[in-house]
Every structure is written in C-alpha cells, then in structure tokens.
C-alpha cells in the first residue's frame, strides 16, 4: 500500500469511526438505562437525514440550523417511543426489541408515503471542495463529521459526569432500585435516555444527509453496524462503544479498500460474533454480579 493511499485510508477510517461513534453512543445509552434495545435506531438516523432534507433542501434554511432542528424532532420521537413501547414492555428486553422492529416498518412507510419511496432525495452538499492532508483528499463534509462527533461526545460526557440529571441517569443505569430509593424517578430517566438516544441518532443522520443517499430504507444498513459496535463495546458502556466504533471504522475502511464492501461486512459481523462468544460482556463491559 503506497503512502498516499495509506493516509487517505486512515483519514477515511477516522471519519467512519466518528460517524459510527455518534450513532452507537445513543444505542448504548438507551440499553444502559433499563435495557432498552432499540431496533428502530437506524430509522431515527433516517428521520434525522429527512429533517435536513425538509428544512435545508426544501425550505432553504441554512445547513447548521437544519442540522440543529434534528435534535429536538428526533429526540421527541425517542421520548414517544419510550412512553408507548419500552415502558409497557419493560419486563422483557426481547419484546421491546421486537416491537421497535415493528416501529422501524412503521417509520419507513410513513416517511416513504410522505416524501416518496423510489428515488433517493438529493441533499446538496453545503461545503464543497476537499481538504488536502499530506496528499490525501477528503471532502469537507466528511471532515466536518469529526469535530461534530468530538463536540457531541464531549457534551454528552459533560452531561453525564458533571450535571445532576446526568449523574442520576448513570445511577439509574447502575442500579435502578437503589436509584429509586434515592428519589430518582425511573420513568423520567428512561424518557431522558431515549430522548438523548434519539437526538444523537437524528444528529448523525442530519450530518450525513449530504453525503449519504437519503431513502426511507437508509436506516437498515446503519442498524447492523450500530449493533456490532454496541455489542463489541459491551452493550451499555459508552466508552466501550466509542472505542469499538473507532476500531470498526478502521477495520471496515481498510477491508473495503483492500477487498470489497461485502467482505468488510462479513469481517464486522464475525468480530461481533467472536466478541459475544469469547467475551460476552464486551471490550469494556462490566461483568454482571
């Protein structure tokens, strides 16, 4: 592999890893609090992309404003999902997971009926041109994802470790019963977790809308990757999800460059299966008492 291609591939890997991290963190967070496994997470990502499509491409808002709109809109969808699906099925992880698979179908049809199924929606790239890093060319839109991911993850870290509600959320993830005894409302915390989870998926979709084909089914490709990342990271560990996201970003990008995309998928899936079987608690997961 020559040096130019190597730098290019490494840069692409970091960009891919950042994207995976933003998507997977929300999934890991929802699972950490009351074991909410959201199959429709990929569809939340898709809805975020459609928010940008509607506000930026159709209504002509500035791109950053359209991206920020995805946070309240998709976040609210997360809250509604918690209230209507996860809360009634709280006793059974699989039931919530399967019900959100149904939700994925529902969202695909609704979006498809509103904005069309067949053709992909084209969102014009707001930031043209490419960055030139030691001979490697990376589109600005892709470069933008990296600082956006860093900002988002830092904000999340700040919230979880420095803000009272964030600490309550972590307490709830560690031990719901004890958290409840301390006067933390479990229902409010699960709603908050799903709100943040939805918002982060929506944000990821919004950022990627200009460089990703926007279709009602775009969530499908994402959900598998997101689950690989989360399972490898240890299901409820946010730090594990970030680590696994970067690892998988490198693995996927390098295998895709050297071989093809199908092989990259196979390697990713095999990594996940290996982690589940050899180290079921994941790379950074805690062992259950």
């Amino acid at each position: 592999m020559e040096i130019g291609l190597l730098i290019q591939t490494i840069a692409n890997s970091i960009a891919a890893g950042s994207i995976y991290a933003v998507i997977a963190v929300g999934l890991a967070m929802a699972f950490g609090v009351m074991k909410m496994a959201n199959f429709a997470h990929g569809e939340f990502f898709m809805c975020g992309a459609y928010v940008v499509y509607v506000f930026y491409a159709l209504l002509g808002w500035p791109f950053p404003a359209a991206v920020l709109m995805s946070i309240p809109i998709v976040g609210a969808m997360g809250v509604v999902t918690e209230r209507l699906i996860f809360r009634p099925t709280r006793s059974n992880v699989l039931a919530g997971f399967m019900a959100t698979a149904g939700l994925a179908f529902v969202l695909q049809v609704l979006v498809g009926q509103m904005w069309g199924v067949g053709l992909m929606r084209s969102v014009p790239t707001p930031y043209m041109g490419a960055a030139d890093i030691a001979g490697a060319k990376i589109g600005w839109q892709r470069v933008l994802v990296i600082p956006a991911a860093i900002v988002m993850l830092s904000a999340l870290w700040f919230f979880l470790y420095r803000v009272k509600h964030g600490k309550a959320l972590r307490a709830c993830a560690q031990d719901p019963d004890t958290a409840r005894l301390q006067g933390i409302g479990i229902n409010r915390m699960t709603m908050l977790a799903m709100g943040i989870s939805g918002a982060s998926a929506g944000l990821a979709g919004a950022l990627l809308a200009p460089i990703h084909p926007v279709t009602p089914y775009m969530g499908h490709g994402v959900i598998l990757t997101a689950f690989i990342v989360v399972v490898m990271g240890g299901m409820e560990s946010i730090a594990g999800a970030v680590l696994a996201a970067i690892l998988l970003g490198f693995v996927h990008t390098f295998v895709t460059t050297l071989s093809d995309a199908v092989t990259a998928q196979m390697v990713g899936v095999a990594c996940m299966a290996a982690v589940l079987v050899v180290r079921p608690q994941g790379l950074l997961g805690r062992v259950k008492a």
């Binding site: 699906i85 919530g96 399967m98 019900a99 149904g102 939700l103 994925a104």
Partner: peptide, 9 residues
C-alpha cells in the same frame, strides 16, 4: 409493524 407492536404491548 403496528400489529407487532400492538400484540407485544
């Protein structure tokens, strides 16, 4: 999808 959600809930 709606049927699935209905039955599970």
């Amino acid at each position: 999808g709606g049927t699935l959600i209905f039955f599970l809930v």
